[in-house]
Design a protein around this nucleic acid. Structure first.
Length: 581
RNA sequence: CGGGGCGUAGCGCAGCUUGGUAGCGCACCUGCCUUGGGAGCAGGGGGUCGCAUGUUCAAAUCAUGUCGCCCCGACCA
C-alpha cells in the first residue's frame, strides 16, 4: 500500500473528547472517527487491525470445530418475549418498529435467535454437538458509553454458541473455548489473565472472563500471589482471619452516640476499629426489602447479593425510604429488634464469628455495644456478601491476594438449559426421550480487543502494534524523493516475499513522516536515506523495542521476512504454551 | 437518573464578564524555497458562533428553552 493512497488522516493534536490512551491514539492515528456517542467509523487502518484479529479468532474457532454463520441484527420481538428478556433487557436494548408497527430490536446478543434456529432444525442427538459462531456488530444502548471503543453502543463481537446433549458435552465445549481463547489472546500478543467471573443467577460457578491487564481497565481483579487463583472482584472470595479480641461474653449495653452516624464517626467516638462494628443496609428488591449486615469495614458486594435475592431490581434504599418504610433513622439502624417475619435479614458469613460488636440501636443517637451476633440476633441468613479485598488470604492456598485492573475482552459461559427450555429447543436422545439442549455461550469483543492492545502497547509517540495484529508489518520511509526509486524497488521485493508494506511515498518532510510512522505504530520501520544508501544500507527501527539496526539493501527483503515470521511464530509458540496449560 | 463542564473553521483554542456583526495556532489551497524528527516566506479559501425563542436599534456575547458531547456520581447508615 502506498501511503499517498491511504485514507488515514492523522492529527497533531488530540481531540478534546478523548480521555484514555487507546481512544486518543486511534483518533490521532486516523483509525477511527466518531459518529455519535459510542458509535464509531472504523477507517482503513483500524479495519485492517480488526480483520487481523478476526482472522485469528476464526482460525481458532475453526480449530475447535466452530462453524461460522451470520445471524440477523434486526430481530423480532417475539423471540425475546418468549425467552422473557424483552422486558428484562430494559433500556439497554435498541428497539424499533416497522411500518406495520411490529416490534423489533437491534441484537444486543444472539442467544434467542440462534436457539430458535437450532430448535427448528435439530431433532436428534445425532445432530449434536454444534458450535456455531459469528463475528458481527452488537447493539447495546449503554447508559454511559465511554472511553472510545472500550464501551461503545455499537461494537464488534465474536459470539459462539455451543449445543450439546449433556453436561459432559458442555464441559468439553467449554474447555475447547477456554483453550481457543488462551490461544487467541496469546496470538494477538496480549498480556492477559483468565479470571473467575460472576455468572449471574443462572449457570452457577462456571464462567470465566479473559482480562487484558491494563490501567485503563474498568474491571478490578484479585489474584493470588502463589497459586493460579484469579477472580473478578464481583466474584472473588477470600479468607479473613478475625481479630481474637473480646472473646468473653458481656451483656449487651446501649450507649449514647449523639450525632455519630457513620462507621467512621462511631468508631472514633467509641475508640474501636471498624472491624468491630456491623452495619445494616436496606436494599429494595423485586420481592420487597432485605436488610443486609456486613462488618463496618466491609463493602457489600451487590453482585453476590443480587444472586441471592434474585430478580432484576436491586438498589440501596435511600435514607428517606428507610425512614418512611421502617421508621428507622439511617445512621443508627441495627439488626436488633428487626422482625425476620417482616424483612428478610441477610448477614455476611464473617458476622457470625464476631464478638462484642457495635450495632445501631434503631434509635437516633444510640448504638448497642457488646453485641453477640449468635446470641442477640440469631435469626439471620448467613451468606458470602462482602467484597473481597487485596491483602486478604487466597481461598485456595496460603497466598495473599493482590489486585490489578483489567479490560474484559472475552467471557465464556455455561448457559445450561435456560434458553433451550424457554424457547423449546429439544432433541430426542438414544432412548427416544425429549431432552432440552445444553448450551454455552462464548464472546470476544473484537473492537475492544483492538483498543485493549493499544492500552498495553504504546509510548508517548504513539502505538506499538504487536506483529500479529499490526495494520502492516513494515513501514518503508524514503527520506526524500531522491530515495523513492530505491524504496519502490524494496517495496516490490518485500511485497513479493509476502511482507505487508506501507510505503510512505508522500511528498512530506522527513520529520512529518517519522512522526506519523511512530503514531501509526507499524512494528518495523525501514528508513531509506542518503546516509545509509551511501554504504548500501537502510536503517531499521523496531517500534516495540526502539532498537535500531542496519541492513544492506540487498538483504532487506529476506531479513524483513525473517523478522516478521519470527515475531508471528513467537506468538504462536506462546499460544501453544497457553493452551497446553 | 443526579451533579459538573463544554458546544465559535477539519483539530486545538481565544473572544462572552462590560452587546456594536469574529480572531489565533495547526491543518488546507497557490507560488517560491526547503528536505534525516511535525521547516521558512508570500498570498489565499473556509465559520447560519449547536439549534430555537425572547430582550435590544444591535446578540457569539444577556435570558429562557432545547439538542448534542465529555467527565464524575448513583447513596455503605
Amino acid at each position: 500500500m502506498r501511503q499517498s493512497m491511504l485514507f488515514a488522516p492523522t492529527l497533531r493534536e488530540t481531540p478534546a473528547e478523548a480521555e484514555i490512551v487507546s481512544h486518543k491514539l486511534m483518533l490521532r492515528a486516523g483509525m477511527i472517527r466518531k459518529s455519535a456517542a459510542g458509535i464509531y467509523t472504523y477507517l482503513p487502518l483500524a479495519q485492517r487491525v480488526l480483520n487481523k484479529i478476526s482472522r485469528i479468532v476464526r482460525e481458532e474457532m475453526d480449530r475447535e470445530n466452530g462453524q461460522e454463520l451470520a445471524l440477523p441484527i434486526v430481530q423480532p420481538a417475539e423471540i425475546w418475549k418468549e425467552s422473557g428478556r424483552w422486558d428484562v433487557y430494559g433500556d439497554e436494548m435498541f428497539r424499533l418498529k416497522d411500518r406495520h408497527n411490529r416490534e423489533f430490536c437491534l441484537g444486543p446478543t444472539h442467544e434467542e435467535i440462534i436457539t430458535t434456529i437450532v430448535k427448528n432444525e435439530v431433532r436428534s442427538y445425532r445432530d449434536l454437538p454444534l458450535r456455531l459462531y459469528q463475528i458481527q456488530n452488537k447493539y447495546r444502548d449503554e447508559i454511559r458509553p465511554r472511553f472510545g471503543l472500550m464501551r461503545g453502543r455499537e461494537f464488534i463481537m465474536k459470539d459462539l454458541y455451543s449445543f450439546d446433549v449433556d453436561e459432559a458435552g458442555l464441559e468439553e465445549s467449554y474447555q475447547a473455548m477456554y483453550r481457543a481463547y488462551n490461544r487467541i489472546f496469546s496470538r494477538c500478543g496480549l498480556k492477559f489473565r483468565p479470571v473467575e467471573a460472576d455468572s449471574g443467577a443462572i449457570g452457577g460457578n462456571s464462567s470465566q472472563e479473559f482480562m487484558v491487564l491494563a490501567e485503563a481497565g474498568e474491571a478490578l481483579i484479585l489474584y493470588c500471589d502463589s497459586c493460579s487463583y484469579a477472580a473478578n472482584v464481583e466474584k472473588a472470595v477470600s479468607v479473613v482471619s478475625q481479630a481474637a479480641t473480646g472473646q468473653e461474653m458481656k451483656a449487651m449495653a446501649k450507649v449514647a452516640t449523639p450525632d455519630q452516624k457513620t462507621i467512621e464517626e462511631v468508631c472514633s467516638f467509641l475508640q474501636i476499629a471498624p472491624e468491630q462494628t456491623v452495619k445494616t443496609l436496606f436494599y429494595g428488591t423485586d420481592s420487597g426489602y432485605v436488610a443486609v449486615l456486613v462488618r463496618g469495614s466491609d463493602q457489600v458486594n451487590e453482585i453476590k447479593l443480587g444472586n441471592i435475592v434474585g430478580g432484576n431490581k436491586l438498589y440501596l434504599a435511600s435514607p428517606e425510604e428507610v425512614q418512611e418504610v421502617f421508621g428507622l433513622p439511617v445512621g443508627y439502624v441495627g439488626p436488633i429488634g428487626l422482625d425476620p417475619a417482616k424483612v428478610r435479614i441477610l448477614a455476611d458469613n464473617l458476622v457470625e464469628g464476631m464478638h462484642q460488636v457495635v450495632v445501631g440501636a434503631n434509635e437516633a443517637g444510640f448504638h448497642y455495644q457488646y453485641v453477640e451476633p449468635q446470641r442477640d440476633f440469631p435469626k439471620v441468613e448467613y451468606a458470602d456478601l462482602r467484597t473481597a479485598r487485596a491483602g486478604e488470604q487466597c481461598p485456595h492456598c496460603k497466598g495473599r491476594l493482590s489486585e490489578a485492573r483489567g479490560i474484559e475482552v472475552g467471557q465464556i459461559f455455561k448457559l445450561g438449559t435456560k434458553y433451550s427450555k424457554a424457547l423449546g429447543a429439544n432433541f430426542l436422545d438414544e432412548k427416544g426421550q425429549i431432552m432440552p439442549i445444553i448450551m454455552g455461550c462464548y464472546g470476544i469483543g473484537i473492537s475492544r480487543t483492538m483498543a485493549a492492545a493499544i492500552e498495553q502497547n504504546y509510548d508517548e509517540n504513539g502505538i506499538k502494534w504487536p506483529m500479529a495484529i499490526a495494520p502492516f508489518h513494515v513501514h518503508l520511509v524514503p527520506v526524500s524523493a531522491d530515495q523513492l526509486p530505491v524504496a519502490e524497488e524494496l517495496y516490490r521485493e518485500l511485497t513479493a516475499e509476502g511482507v505487508e508494506v506501507l510505503l510512505d511515498d508522500r511528498n512530506e518532510r522527513p520529520g512529518v513522516k517519522f512522526k506519523d510512522a511512530d503514531l501509526i505504530g507499524i512494528p518495523v520501520r525501514i528508513t531509506v536515506g542518503p546516509k545509509g544508501l551511501a554504504q548500501g544500507e537502510v536503517e531499521v527501527r523496531f517500534r516495540q523495542t526502539g532498537e535500531e539496526v542496519r541492513w544492506s539493501v540487498g538483504e532487506v527483503a529476506r531479513k524483513a521476512k525473517e523478522f516478521v515470521q519470527a515475531a508471528l511464530e513467537a506468538s504462536e509458540a506462546q499460544a501453544d504454551l497457553m493452551s497446553r496449560k
